[in-house]
Structure formats: structure tokens, C-alpha cells
Design a protein around this nucleic acid. Structure first.
Lengths: 316, 316
DNA sequence: ATTGTTTGTACGAAGAATGTCCCATACCGT
DNA sequence: ACGGTATGGGACATTCTTCGTACAAACAAT
């Protein structure tokens, strides 16, 4: 009950996980710019609050956008949010509270829009949420649960196929648009996302791309339904530092195996290949054998990506 | 709230990205003509305001139109805007000449981007062309020929599958984005676009939607791979005044017939159903029998739509 | 054609800003 | 008590920025 947004509860390692910052960087930020003022345990170790995490996420987004940390560190949360807001109108309380509350309300309104088959409204809602939350939180808190809800409703016959398709097309639209406008420095490592042969469900791959973009990568979405060799060739050509593949439809191994094998063979251990999606679980054994890395959740992907780009083999 | 239009917040790199100027050029402009007077951080680095960016964009546009920087730099924003008002008219109404030129050069650069697998560049080029030409001309002069070129190159083995997919995904992205930002009055008639079962090629439907949007309709793109009943249901629900369906893959009639029949039966003659795409030709007889209207070219669609919505034939 | 002017680009040195590395010390749960 | 984990700071390495100067191509006016 007493847990407010300001009560210091998270130890450093949780914060690192959630923000994707490294320990050194976080400490440097605190030391040099007093970015946040975490509490302490008796022994002197830091304890961060929920709002600390919010602020750190905000700051990270700002730096990714190109603002210098030294400057944004002096600004209030609202001011930073204002900097990131592409459309400088509409207010509402930013930053702290929204998270679960805000994303839940967005999802509710999205479902209404789907019911009305109002693609425009849906588009607008998603876009707003995307800008507001940034790629990572948008993906994790809005898209994933929303897709699940849509899937369930479709399964239960509560909505029509068109509605499901409309929702899917719109999400895809907003996601790829979000990607297009997420800029990365030229030196950023490249992440290639795609879908293997016969896999027409693109959202998983787009989610992966969005996460990567949020982590500071340059994400390239190749498209759906691609043979393994093609994905590998593109990764080579683009000098990708990591590859993400989404398998949603749990087809029989015979259909998927050649693609995965080609990926494994062509990229081997030089470039890590992450495989995620519902379908990935069903092929765990094959994936392990081929030295491809199975991804359970988007958070997993995030930490794995951080590890790759950081180049440091952290054991966690 | 505390951030006004004039408060210095953007470091150079953001300004460079937003304006497309190079660092050297921007500094040269400031030094020589004092085009803007950015603030400074404590360390002496520049900080630009939103209005600085506005002015720089204006100046850049002016130079692109041939004005010399030294002269426009002395003008106020309004004066520059006035200059630009007059110029564009000479390039817009001229119809065919310079635009085929422009679109050809855009397509050439797009093909280069595809060669490089540079999705970002491709996206940027298409977006620019879309804004510059408007939905209709963009569709007719850029997308259609570009898609054809890509298809041929793919067929000839000159490009890889990934490249074709990347191009397709990017085009789709830009098109649907274009749609999302084309606003129409609430009273505008509604056009529903989709693709029938098994048809995964979405660009045709998106083109149709773009054309409709350009003609003043409110275009709703439902998605790909939809059963006829679903498209019909959506059309009913949205009170569409016309429906567009794209068939690219010339599948055997047995696969397509049920969908088309459902469309014909549900919508009948009340709502016109246009069928276009490569595949449509192969089913001409069936289409005629079902009273669905075959569309040969996008121009056809445009005139047909004009007939439906107002009966006033547009001469362009 | 020959000038002088305008304008975009290039180079290099000095300084800022920022991310990373390292280490001695201290904490924590088992 | 011990291994893993944190802390605080100093020290680097790198990338950005700045600023002056310089150069070359395009242009205008002679």
C-alpha cells in the first residue's frame, strides 16, 4: 500500500535491466549530472524508485534522439517529454503515472476503434501512444497485449476477420512508421529483422526491430516470407551485428528447418541470430542444435542486444 | 510548458539532421550571413531553438529554388515565405514535362537505394516524392513504374529476393503512411480497399486507396488476404460508396471465384466493386458475369470514382 | 575571355562532452 | 568468511564542436 512512485525499492541491477544502461554509465550520469538522486540502503547501496526509472528512460530516449545528456539532465521530466513530443500540443500528465494506466486506457480505446472499424482512429491512438511511450514501452505495454487481446477475441468469434486484419495492418503501419522515424547515429550497430518462408505474420519481427531501435541500434526490417539464405545475405551485406527472426505460425519443422539451417550455416557464430515468437518454442531443440538463440520475451531480446552491442560477456 | 518556440534546446547534430545541412555549411552560413543566432552552452557549443530550425528550413528551401543565400539571409521569415509562394506554381501545373523527369530521377535513386539495401534512404526518397507529387501522381508516376522495374529486375535475377522484399515493404510503408495523413472531410464518401484470399500482394490495393484519397474520398485499407464476405461486411458497416479489390497473383478461378461471388452477392449493384491488378485480366469473363467492374489502369479507376462520387468528370 | 564575388567544402588544432575501463574498498546473502 | 556485486573516482579514448583559414567551382560583371 505504501509503495508510491517515489519510494526507493529497486537495486541497481534491476534498473540496469529495465533501462538498458550499463552500470558505469549510470554511475557516471549520476556523478557528473546528478541525473537522479536514488536512496540508499544502510550499507550505502543505491535504491531507485519507479519515478527514477521513468526519468532514466526518458533521458535515454532524449540522448538517443540526439540531445546531449549534460543538457537534458538539467531539465524536468515534463520539459524532456516536451522535447521528444514531435507534435508540440496536447498535454496531460506525462512521465510518471501513465505507464500501466495510460497504456491500459489506450488499449481500451483501441479496442473500441477496432469495433467501429475505424482505422483512422486506431492509427491515431497507436501513433500517439508510440510517440508518448517510445518504441520500447510502446512495444511492450501496448502492442504485445493489444495483439494478444485481438487474437483472443478473434478466436472467440467476438470480432470479425476484417477487424482483426484491420487492426493488424494498422499496427504494422504504425510500427514501421515508428521505425522509420527512429534515428540512430551512423556508427550504431545494425539489427536486421525478418520473417522466414511462409511466415506472413510480421508484427513479431517489427516488434523486435522496435526494441532494437530503442536500444540504439539501427534496425532494418527486411519484410516477411524470406528464405534463410536471403536473410543471411542481407545481414552480410549490411554488416549487421545481430539478426532477429520471428516465427509465429508453428509449422512443421520440415518447412522451417531449411531456412534456419541456412541462417545458422551462413552466419554461424559470427553474427548472433535471435529467434522469437510463438512458433519458436516448438522448435527449441532444433534451434539449440543450430546455435540460434531462442528469445522468450521482448525483455530477453533487450538484454541480449545490450550484451551484444556492449561486447561484454556478462553472466546473468 | 516552459519550453517556448524560442528557447535554445537543440544541439547541432539534431539541427543538421532535421535540416539536412552539413556542419560546415551551417557554420559558414552563420559566420558569413548570421542566418540565425543560436544560444550557447556553458562550454561554448551552440543550442538552437525550434524557430531557428524553422528559419533554416526556410532558407534551405529558398536556396534550392535558386535564390542565393547571401540575399535571402537578409530577409525576414515572412519575406522568404513570400518568395517561395510564387515560385512553386511554375513547376506544378506544367503537367507532364518536368515531373516525368523528376519521377524518373527519383526512381533511379530508389533503385540505387535498393541496390544498397538502404531501406532508410529508400523510405526517405519515396516519402519526399509522395509529398512533392501528391498521392495520385506519386502512385501513377513513381510507384507503378518502380514496382514494375523491381519486378523485372527480380525476374531477371538482377536483384535478390531480399531486395525485392525490402522495396515492397518500404513502398507499402510509405503508401499506408501517406493514406493515414491524407485527411478527408467527414462527409467524404468512403472507399474500401482490400485484397482477396490468398492474395498477399498489397500494393495494388494501397494504390487504389491512394487514388481514391487523392480524389477526395476517405480511403480505408482493410488489409490483405480477406474473404469476400468479410470485405462485404466491412463495406456495409462503413457505409462505403465503393470497394476496390486487387488481384495480382493469377490463381486459378476456383480459388478466387467464391470471394468474388460473395462480394457480388452481398453488395450487388448497390455498391460498385472495382477489381484491378494483373490477375484481374485473367478473370474478365467471370468478373463481367458477376457485374464487378474491371479496372485496367489507375486512371480508369480515377475516372470511375469521379463518376460515382459526383458525376463530375475531372479533366487533368 | 577575364576578372572579382559568391558559395559550398575541406583541413587541422584545440577544447568539450561523453562513454568506458580500472582499481581499491566496501557491502551482501549464503 | 567468501564469492559475487556495488561504490567512488581517477584516467583514458573517442567522438563532437568550434573556429580560423584555405581552396575550388559556379557565377556575374566587365
Amino acid at each position: 500500500m505504501a509503495l508510491s512512485h517515489d519510494s526507493p525499492v529497486y537495486p541497481v541491477r534491476i534498473v540496469l535491466r529495465r533501462t538498458g544502461l550499463t552500470a558505469e554509465l549510470l554511475r557516471a550520469w549520476e556523478r557528473r549530472y546528478e541525473v537522479v538522486a536514488p536512496g540508499r540502503t544502510q550499507g550505502g547501496q543505491r535504491l531507485y524508485s519507479e519515478s527514477d526509472v521513468d526519468r532514466l528512460l526518458l533521458l535515454k530516449r532524449a540522448t538517443l534522439y540526439g540531445h546531449s545528456i549534460g543538457r537534458v539532465a538539467q531539465l524536468s521530466n515534463d520539459e524532456i517529454a516536451g522535447l521528444l513530443e514531435t507534435v508540440p500540443h496536447q498535454s496531460e500528465p506525462t512521465g510518471t503515472e501513465p505507464q500501466s494506466d495510460y497504456s491500459a486506457s489506450i488499449r481500451r480505446r483501441c479496442l473500441e476503434a477496432v469495433g467501429w472499424m475505424d482505422g483512422g482512429a486506431l492509427d491515431g491512438l497507436l501513433r500517439q501512444a508510440a510517440v508518448r511511450l517510445g518504441p520500447v514501452q510502446f512495444a511492450e505495454q501496448v502492442v504485445v497485449p493489444f495483439v494478444r487481446e485481438i487474437g483472443e477475441m478473434w478466436h472467440d468469434g467476438k470480432i470479425r476477420i476484417v477487424q482483426e486484419h484491420l487492426a493488424t495492418a494498422t499496427i504494422r503501419q504504425v510500427m514501421s512508421n515508428l521505425l522509420a522515424f527512429t534515428v540512430a547515429p551512423a556508427s550504431a550497430p545494425i539489427f536486421v529483422a525478418a520473417t522466414t518462408s511462409g511466415q506472413h505474420h510480421e508484427i513479431g519481427a517489427l516488434l523486435a526491430a522496435a526494441i532494437a531501435a530503442g536500444e540504439g541500434w539501427r534496425a532494418v526490417y527486411l519484410g516477411a516470407d524470406l528464405p534463410g539464405e536471403e536473410i543471411a545475405a542481407a545481414a552480410e551485406r549490411l554488416r549487421a551485428r545481430a539478426v532477429g527472426v520471428s516465427i509465429v505460425f508453428p509449422a512443421d519443422s520440415v518447412a522451417i528447418e531449411p531456412d534456419l539451417r541456412a541462417l545458422s550455416q551462413a552466419l554461424g557464430t559470427r553474427i548472433p541470430v535471435f529467434v522469437g515468437g510463438e512458433g519458436a518454442r516448438h522448435h527449441r531443440a532444433l534451434l539449440d542444435q543450430l546455435q540460434l538463440r531462442t528469445i522468450e520475451t521482448l525483455t530477453d531480446l533487450r538484454t541480449e542486444l545490450g550484451r551484444v552491442s556492449g561486447g561484454r560477456p556478462e553472466t546473468a
